[in-house]
């Protein structure tokens, strides 16, 4: 089963941290991600730019293009992983492993684990 792990955190607080701290977080996440990859569990994953870089298309009667993210929330969607796990317990376990370095570096927030209903690989992006 494919799962998406959606990463939510307060982006203002996240970005207020010195770059060195973020680099340290990424350095600690790297072996976890590599390990997951070796286990054949990790698919595409990414980090999003801040919500200030977002544009939203609202449709209904007519489509309007708005600056900013879809929703103004206290915590924002900052990135996600697509993982492949045999079952839900395994997905939770992967979530816990990805949470580890975040906690170690004082991150607050949450990971949402949601099964993927359908997926398409699309073309290969360079």
């Amino acid at each position: 089963m494919l799962y998406a792990i959606l990463c939510y955190s307060d982006e203002v607080a996240t970005r207020a941290k010195p770059k060195a701290q973020d680099d340290a977080l990424l350095a600690d996440l790297e072996p976890v991600q590599r390990q997951l990859c070796d286990e054949g569990k990790l698919g595409p994953h990414l980090r999003l730019m801040p919500t200030t870089a977002a544009t939203t298309l609202r449709y209904g009667k007519e489509t309007v293009v708005l600056d900013g993210p879809f929703a103004e929330t206290k915590e924002q969607l900052l990135g996600f992983y697509v993982i492949e796990c045999a079952n839900f317990d395994e997905a939770i376990e992967v979530g816990q492993r990805l949470l580890g370095p975040r906690i170690a570096h004082g991150g607050a927030g949450a990971l949402e684990i949601r099964p993927v209903a359908m997926s398409w690989t699309g073309g290969s992006l360079k």
Binding site: M1, F88, D89, I92, P115, A117
Partner: peptide, 16 residues
Amino acid sequence: REMIDEGLALVEKALR
């Protein structure tokens, strides 16, 4: 298949 996958995901969640 889609309904089955969602059903299985929910069973697993519930049993936890």
